[in-house]
Design a binder for these strands. Sequence first.
DNA 1: CGTTGTCTTGATTACGCTCAACTCAGGTGG
DNA 2: CCACCTGAGTTGAGCGTAATCAAGACAACG
Lengths: 247, 247
Amino acid sequence: MSEDQSCIIHHFSHYCSLTKEEKALLVSLEENPTDIKAGSLLWEVGDPAKEFCTLHSGWAYSYRHLESGDRQILEIYLPGDIIGLREFAFSQRLENVCMITDGVVCHFPHKRLLEIFRQSVPLTSVVFAIASRHQALVTERLVTLARRSARQKTAHFLYEMYLRLRQTNGDIDRQFRLPLSQEQLADILGLSPVHVSRTFSLLSEEGLVFRDRHNVTIPDLKALAAAGEFDDCYLHDDVRPLFDLSA
Amino acid sequence: MSEDQSCIIHHFSHYCSLTKEEKALLVSLEENPTDIKAGSLLWEVGDPAKEFCTLHSGWAYSYRHLESGDRQILEIYLPGDIIGLREFAFSQRLENVCMITDGVVCHFPHKRLLEIFRQSVPLTSVVFAIASRHQALVTERLVTLARRSARQKTAHFLYEMYLRLRQTNGDIDRQFRLPLSQEQLADILGLSPVHVSRTFSLLSEEGLVFRDRHNVTIPDLKALAAAGEFDDCYLHDDVRPLFDLSA
DNA sequence: CGTTGTCTTGATTACGCTCAACTCAGGTGG
DNA sequence: CCACCTGAGTTGAGCGTAATCAAGACAACG
């Protein structure tokens, strides 16, 4: 994987400018690209956890099964994301991870992260910053799942996905592809598939969201954000400049 | 704050054995102890975020307000915890933090963490491990809040608190003090205060949990864990030995 | 043209919310 | 010492959102 193909470098560049050595370190994380099919599992709960994974292309999600048979999707991963950071402190996987679309992933062992810790304080900070941003995302969804209505949950999720996609893919304008079935949406939003359908109908009647198969159109972004009580401070792109801290 | 008073050292020692230099680094995080009263705020959403805080004694919680007027409590902090890790990548606070009881906190600036990154790879790993464990906790609660019944939520929360308290305070046996009002419990569990009351009555009828004011008794731990569908792999104490990774 | 899976719509049910009245313990002042 | 107040917790009645169950629509595919 060369430097300009690297999603990781692209991702990390958001946080600070990288030296040649740092870029080389990051590129080395992606030296084992593996093709992987939609629907296949990267790993399951209980598997040994000795590696991370960068998602080079395609979408993935992590999820947990409940005893009731329900499923809760925890996170959607987009290209450039690192999968499995949460399990750094554990010897076993806590979550299943499944590909949504075909894609390419690059495995690298936990100890590679320690090399980063050893060799570059700025990269260490960026890894930490990325982890803390992911955490912010999860926290925001916790609030939404715990307290908000189906309509708010749905609006919130769609707006969040819109922002995340725009961050990596500047050319998105009010329309994007969302390769998720209603069952998967239900598992994300903590709703039943039936109610997801109803909620989309409602949002469509209100003119907030139009959906045709897997294509989503959002005529009025602000209105959608308002409907989801979306507070975007947890996704802001004006990242705290990390070099300030080193001073 | 001397070495044997340090909650941080106690906390970090769970993850790896510490050299003298590393202990000194950690002690330096706690050089500014501040007394703080129950009910007072450490900070609020929007405040500048340039510091972390170690909680030396007392309990605290972080929370968010919703437009509806509801509140969601995100995390309960116990002595030894670091507060504010999540905001490392942000310039503003994303959450309010409030003391539950009187306590002592120690502020230290973000850049102190960078010194740790610079000076000790093991400590860096431990910080990372702690962050990833906190994240696992939040994720677990996300699943619970999104999918489980009031009875399960309550049982799950109580069992989790029991385990966390036992981890730091080995002498706990089926009974502990839980200094939370039902309103606060409601804000944690995503329920109304009224329903928290009903749920405790139910658990009490079932003989699973007895509560007298702020004292909680759990006659049968396994039964409570089962009622909360508690899977304790995310709290396991057999921490992945970090030095293995450095090899 | 039938089959399959996904989505939609309708009818019924249930869990937890809201509102309101009541209990109870602790604290305060006469 | 008692009367009163306050705040937390409990209990009851009615309601609403979303779940469940079931039937039907629709598209993709063989």
